[in-house]
Design a protein around this nucleic acid. Structure first.
Ligand SMILES: [Mn+2]
Ligand SMILES: [Mn+2]
Ligand SMILES: [Zn+2]
Ligand SMILES: [Zn+2]
Lengths: 213, 213
DNA sequence: GTTGACATGGTAATAATTATCAAATACAAA
DNA sequence: TTTGTATTTGATAATTATTACCATGTCAAC
């Protein structure tokens, strides 16, 4: 094996320590802001550079989940993540007994598979709270965004269905006139809370799920 | 009363059809290149805009895997993906009987979980083949003296240009990742075959010219 | 102490995406 | 069929995140 030529500079050391100190999976920029308190003269480029070097050396892990910004993890143990669709924070997740289960696809399509990543997504506790408060508030501006009782019932019904529903299916669960349901579905579709994969079939979108969270 | 109906414009329709035509998970840019053949006057912005609108409407899916570029999928059925660590292509993957299995974490850490994504990664068939060829080509020791295919291509491109080129100019002529080009340029510069008269601009040297003579 | 590989801070450049805006278009109402 | 107008488009500017560059600095080996 070739000797690792990497020097452990003061900056590199601080970056590594800071990453290991929490389980917050910071971006390069977030880390830079934290580290500036200890090393006010450090450059953002140094942070980027060292995160790259440290992850190539296998001392940290680079996460490429949930959007365009890379995040970094000081925890090397095999584990998986959840991220919030609204604020994009990333947390570790416990898969229980499945934790060490290695998925292997039936057909690899000719690929040589070297790994597998399992990611969950949803709404984090903080954002759940914020959503509740926003709903309570009910300001005029948000009026366009707030849902009436009928709409909420329909969304909840759709959320429980694995497949797309027709208005008949919804009528079975929600005691409303078919005409009403159809009208509300149209409104919900406009707001982006339901989608129609096929004519006359409706399903809830991610936005819809967060609207009733 | 604000009406917010999505119009099915010609551009939007073509984009949707093109996406559904293959299982290649193109990026906005790749799709743009394909569509330009049918609609030469379409704007890249229109492609980006419509991909966003179509995915919000639930007519297509947005994939945020493997790096910084978003990819899009016309297939709405629940399925998962493999991607190549080297060339970043994305393919569908068959999970066999597990396909519809919904992972649920033991502890959600307070999150309201709305979904789960399973991603495999590895080396695609094409890249496997290329790796084999590269191995055959030459020993690492000789690497210092001989030029590989990429380096020769780059040098030839530079030789044909009257003015200094940016890596973008080279990328237009040589089908390679910008990172690759940049890396090879650095190597070539060290060897004295290219010079950099201005930042990020490169030109061939006399030594470089004789190297490809 | 000289040498030379590796690092750093400051900044420019790049890549991918998003925003802006005047002009074109789709489409519902007249 | 014509018309009014909100939506959409193409062109381009701006933004975001990351990477490249370079002059200068550090340090360990000769
Ligand atoms: Mn983690
Ligand atoms: Mn797919
Ligand atoms: Zn959140
Ligand atoms: Zn590949």
């Amino acid at each position: 094996m070739i000797k690792n030529q990497m020097r452990m500079t003061h900056q590199r050391d601080i970056i590594l320590r800071q990453l290991r100190k929490s389980t917050a999976h910071p971006t390069a920029d977030e880390l830079y802001e934290q580290i500036k308190k200890k090393l006010p003269r450090i450059s953002l480029a140094t942070v980027y550079r060292n995160l790259e070097i440290l992850s190539t050396a296998g001392l940290i892990k680079k996460l490429e989940i949930s959007g365009r910004r890379k995040r970094f993890d000081g925890e090397l143990r095999r584990h998986h993540h959840v991220y919030c669709l609204l604020c994009h924070r990333v947390d570790n997740i416990d898969l229980g007994q499945e934790e060490n289960f290695q998925f292997l696809p039936a057909k690899a399509g000719g690929y040589r598979i070297t790994g597998c990543r399992i990611e969950f997504f949803g709404i984090c506790p903080d954002c759940k709270k914020k959503l509740k408060e926003t709903k309570k508030m009910g300001c005029k501006k948000c009026g366009n965004e707030t849902l009436n009782d009928q709409q909420q019932q329909i969304l909840k019904t759709l959320a429980q269905s694995a497949t797309a529903c027709g208005s008949k299916d919804i009528a079975a669960a929600v005691k409303l006139e078919p005409k009403q349901i159809s009208s509300q579905l149209t409104t919900l579709k406009k707001k982006g809370y339901v989608a129609s994969p096929v004519r006359c079939k409706y399903e809830i979108t991610e936005a819809g799920k967060s609207a009733i969270a």
